[in-house]
């Protein structure tokens, strides 16, 4: 009983000692606007649309990012260009709603949509937080610099013919029954 009371008192005292000692320790806080810490590339803030290594738009407007977005802040319209490439006729992210969860980046099959460490993009007018495709598109490849979706997809969009893409056999001849 006495031991228990002593134990209690000692452990509470230890707590007070710990917190009390902190008063004389230098705070570890980094003061934000005065000091800006360099953020790792995978930090999740302002979203960009990247390009493939040849400089073409990567986004194929597949609607996966807009489908997965938990707050429904991405909208777009897919379209087809003269080469048969599927692309986004318009692409809009409402950053007023975005929670920077990064699910869109995870869902993107083309590595087009990526979150960047640039978190300092606040606007006074909520409508200025609605970014259109031209505001989102950058001239970089971002985090996955070598990937070109259409080289793997197998559809013909002017890069190469059927069977000429990565890891494809030439088209089969269906007019012969020879093995």
């Amino acid at each position: 009983m006495i031991r228990a009371v002593i134990d209690i008192i000692v452990s509470i005292a230890a707590g007070f000692y710990t917190t009390g000692r902190h008063l004389f320790v230098r705070p570890v806080t980094e003061s934000y606007p005065e000091y800006k810490r360099p953020l790792p590339a995978r930090s999740r803030a302002r979203i960009i649309l990247t390009r493939d290594p040849e400089g073409r738009e990567r986004c194929v407007a597949c609607y996966l990012c807009s489908g997965v977005c938990p707050v429904n802040c991405i909208s777009m319209q897919a379209a087809e260009d003269s080469q048969g490439r599927r692309y986004a006729a318009w692409f809009r992210i409402n950053f007023g709603r975005c929670i920077y969860c990064g699910l869109c980046e995870q869902a993107c099959p083309t590595s087009a949509i990526q979150l960047t460490p640039d978190f300092e993009h606040i606007r006074r007018d909520i409508l200025d937080m609605v970014f259109e495709k031209q505001d989102l598109l950058v001239d970089l490849c971002g985090k996955d610099p070598d990937y070109d979706f259409y080289q793997h997809a197998g559809v013909v969009v002017g890069l190469a013919g059927k069977g000429d893409h990565i890891s494809e056999n030439p088209p089969v001849n269906t007019r012969t029954n020879m093995p």
């Binding site: 597949c62 996966l64 099959p109 793997h152 997809a153 197998g154 559809v155």
Partner: peptide, 12 residues
């Protein structure tokens, strides 16, 4: 099967 679901209208 090609891995082209993103550009396939059947996807979904």
């Amino acid at each position: 099967h090609p891995h082209d679901c993103p550009v396939c209208d059947e996807g979904g």
